[in-house]
């Protein structure tokens, strides 16, 4: 039955994608392009492009898109449920363990060493985002001064609002999107 196949495919994607959205991409491709005739390679590239322009995790976006195409709204719900099922079970178990044992000396020691690493990973993601927004690509260009000046201005303005005026993150993001659209249209 198609629902079982959707559920099982996206269950595997949810189970084996560890470490962020870009790790999930090849897994999604293998399931929905190679193993099942659900999407063509072009459609897969399209949904990856759409996923970057819309909020939410890439795997959830792909699950909804594939589900809709293959079996309508029930298909989308089934694929999405399959995708989050491994997380629900595993992370709930880890949450229970964390809140039960975080007071232990050993657990405290381990967590104290994980926190700086987490900050480092967020810093790396932040740098990737800055490069993507300044240059429109994922790698630094040959000439680092060849940046999108509107994006640099929006970035600097947003940072000032956040740090000096403590404006809420969501308001800053939406404001930058609206102002950016206006500036790109005018200039």
């Amino acid at each position: 039955m198609i629902y079982w196949r959707l559920l099982w495919s996206f269950f595997q994607i949810g189970l084996f994608s560890i470490g962020g959205g870009y790790a999930a991409m090849p897994l999604i491709q293998r399931q929905v392009v190679d193993a099942h005739p659900w999407l063509t390679m072009t459609q897969f590239a399209d949904i990856m492009a759409i996923a970057e322009m819309t909020p939410g995790p890439i795997a959830i976006n792909a699950a909804t898109f594939v589900g809709i195409r293959v079996a309508g709204l029930p298909g989308a719900l089934t694929a999405t449920a399959g995708c989050v099922l491994p997380s629900c079970v595993i992370v709930t178990a880890l949450a229970w363990l964390y809140y039960r044992y975080r007071g232990l000396d050993m657990v405290k020691g381990v967590l104290a060493c994980l926190r700086p690493a987490v900050v480092a990973m967020i810093a790396s993601a932040a740098l990737s985002l800055v490069v993507l927004c300044f240059y429109g690509q994922r790698t630094l260009p040959a000439d680092p001064l060849d940046a999108d000046l509107i994006a640099v201005g929006l970035f600097a303005g947003s940072l000032v609002l956040l740090r000096a005026f403590k404006v809420r993150p969501m308001a800053v993001m939406l404001g930058a999107g609206a102002l950016g659209t206006a500036l790109y249209l005018l200039l």
Partner: peptide
């Protein structure tokens, strides 16, 4: 265009 502007805000929020 909206995406580019939004991305600048997102980058600032994460920084």
């Amino acid at each position: 265009m909206a995406m580019n502007g939004l991305l600048a805000g997102v980058a600032a929020v994460v920084c």
